[in-house]
Amino acid sequence: MAMQQRTGRLAGAVYLVVIATGIFSLAYVPSRISVGDDPAATLANVTAQAGLFRAGIAAFALEQIAFLLLPLLLYRVFAAAHRPAATLMVALAVTGVPIALAALAHRLDAVNLLTDPALARVLAAGQLQMLAMAALKSWSSHIFLASMFWGLWLLPFGWLVWRTRAIPRALGVLLMLGGVGYLLNVFGELLIPGYAATVLSDYATLPASLGEIGSGLWLALFGARASMAGPPPPASALSRRERP
């Protein structure tokens, strides 16, 4: 029990690192850099705020390192209760990391194209801007694909929370709803014209945000409770209990 609580608290601390760096790199930095449908203004902001843009890159790299550790720690919390689901959780979470790191390389390419003096001496400004915009588009495409796995891993994770009650069941429900929301956004944008402008697109992943922040805080503060749905005891133990 004490070991599970310590592992849970460590997982919660790592989860909070994932959340904080994710908010900074995927929400705050884009809010300061991206200008809707104005690519020229976006590129100008990348150049003018190159330090902030690079800080976003560093934060996202740290997030991915933490996100590699997180499912492994959660596996130690949940594997005794249902090993196949815990293994699936790890596999789905880890699969998104290489896609996200490939995206990060494109983001780094964009800022280097716009700020490297050596490149400015051999390529025209228009060429550099075109290549930088192509790099940012590739970043967006890779993140779009990675978000599918950001949703998929929440489904077994949320189910394990619900089954084991290691943390409040309400958080498990939010995690599963959030996983569905990620998938709705991915396939909605792929298949439904104009889906990105709908209200559903704006709020589909809100349960994931609430569930992940809540799970990270709960685990960091309280750790993981002992599983209430672990494997059944061996037959010998049952027979001993039944003896008068």
Rank of each mutant, 00 (worst) to 15 (best):
M3A: 15
Q4S: 09
Q4F: 04
R6A: 11
R9H: 08
L16H: 09
V18C: 12
A20R: 00
T21H: 03
G22K: 01
A27P: 00
A27V: 06
Y28F: 12
V29H: 06
R32L: 14
S34Q: 13
V35L: 05
A40E: 05
A50Q: 14
F53Q: 15
G56A: 03
G56V: 06
I57Q: 13
A58C: 08
A59D: 02
E63T: 03
A66P: 01
A66D: 03
L72H: 09
L73Y: 15
L73T: 10
F78G: 12
A80Y: 09
A80L: 06
R83M: 12
M89V: 10
A91Y: 01
A91E: 00
G96S: 04
G96F: 03
P98C: 06
R107T: 07
L108M: 06
D109F: 07
D109Q: 07
L113A: 10
A118N: 08
R121C: 02
A124I: 04
G126R: 03
M130A: 15
A135C: 02
K137D: 15
I143G: 09
M148S: 12
F149G: 02
G151W: 14
G151T: 14
V161L: 08
W162S: 04
T164R: 11
T164A: 11
R165W: 02
A170Q: 08
A170V: 13
L174I: 05
L177Q: 06
L177A: 15
L177W: 03
G178N: 11
V180F: 10
G181P: 15
L184M: 14
G188N: 08
I192A: 09
A196G: 11
D202H: 14
T205M: 13
L206P: 11
L210H: 09
E212K: 00
I213N: 02
G216A: 09
L219I: 05
S227K: 09
S227N: 08
A229P: 07
A229Q: 12
P233F: 04
S236Q: 01
E242G: 03
